[in-house]
Design a protein around this nucleic acid. Sequence first.
DNA 1: AGCCTTGTTGAGCAATGCTCAACAGCGTGA
DNA 2: TCACGCTGTTGAGCATTGCTCAACAAGGCT
Lengths: 187, 187
Amino acid sequence: MSRDDRRRQLLGIGLSKLVEKPIQDLSLDEVAAEAGISRGLLFHYFPTKRDFHRACIEAAGRRILRNTRADDALAPDAQVAEMVRLFVEQIDRRRDFYLSLVHGTGSADVSLVEVYDAIWAEATDRVVAALGVAPEQARVVHAWWAYVEDHALTWSAEPPARRTTSEAALVAHCTDALAALLAVGRR
Amino acid sequence: MSRDDRRRQLLGIGLSKLVEKPIQDLSLDEVAAEAGISRGLLFHYFPTKRDFHRACIEAAGRRILRNTRADDALAPDAQVAEMVRLFVEQIDRRRDFYLSLVHGTGSADVSLVEVYDAIWAEATDRVVAALGVAPEQARVVHAWWAYVEDHALTWSAEPPARRTTSEAALVAHCTDALAALLAVGRR
DNA sequence: AGCCTTGTTGAGCAATGCTCAACAGCGTGA
DNA sequence: TCACGCTGTTGAGCATTGCTCAACAAGGCT
């Protein structure tokens, strides 16, 4: 198997496994066995377990960013609304995937923090670019994403049948919130 | 040594160690050695490594909540401002401690997620109680805490000498943001 | 004295992260 | 055709580490 194919296969296995259990509970033997290769080969591709873990999270982050990209042709406000909608739906559809791989850092692992930072920086840049937000307000957009994330997580936590808010209302609230927050900073 | 004292000692060691390295890299031998006890005794107090980890994070959460409690006698708005100020200062003073122990879940470990949820629920309750926020708006307060957390983390990430915003301005922005967000929900 | 509780130890097992020397298959150039 | 090297691959083996378990020491109670 080619180098790239093998890497992709291993990352795929890692993603599916890391949804079920934290990294401490995932043995590389397990991954190697599922891939049908020897442990040694796994260490050839990812020299250390931490490297493997980081690569998995990077892959998850790329997937999220890919799935929440809005159409450039839309109007600025519509772009943001679209991003939020895709983001909320992404979380709602695969809450465990999101929680276990994309959300939060924990773990005091510096290289992991960098990965998360890069993901949120990209999401922030998109909004800043779409709306033409002033650079000194970028941190407001960044923090607003945390606000949106938290809303989406609590919203998706309750069973769909019992939801008091519609998805559209949630998205609308989030976009309105961004406008309100930017107004706060401008005052 | 008494049961409680021993537990406290071990948790203290765990807290200091977990700031430096993620749980995967912390061997219980290390903890036992620093405490001057045998490995066996450590497993007597915390039957599994995950239990130890969870207990450490609970302790960290309790510490944060203790350090960010506002005076009940203050006016509602002042209480919130006080909480935010204490929170920002807490993060600024011990950023690594906060990042590695209190922020985020990751790890797909259900019992850990519960611990984090409890911490944020308590913080939310305090604000809801202080301001008399309507129950259906509690989730706005919850998400607002995520907003505040993100602001505090990016603010504390830049070296104090180069900061463009004062702490007071940050706190003011956050409290204003809460008012603005609650107004969005009410519309 | 005998006994029970409680904090404590240390040997030992099995799993696991990681290293390393070597091998198989295949294309390339002499 | 043979030798060479590159690349994906293996499997033995080492050291660490999470965890179990039987046993011990000391203090209080009957």
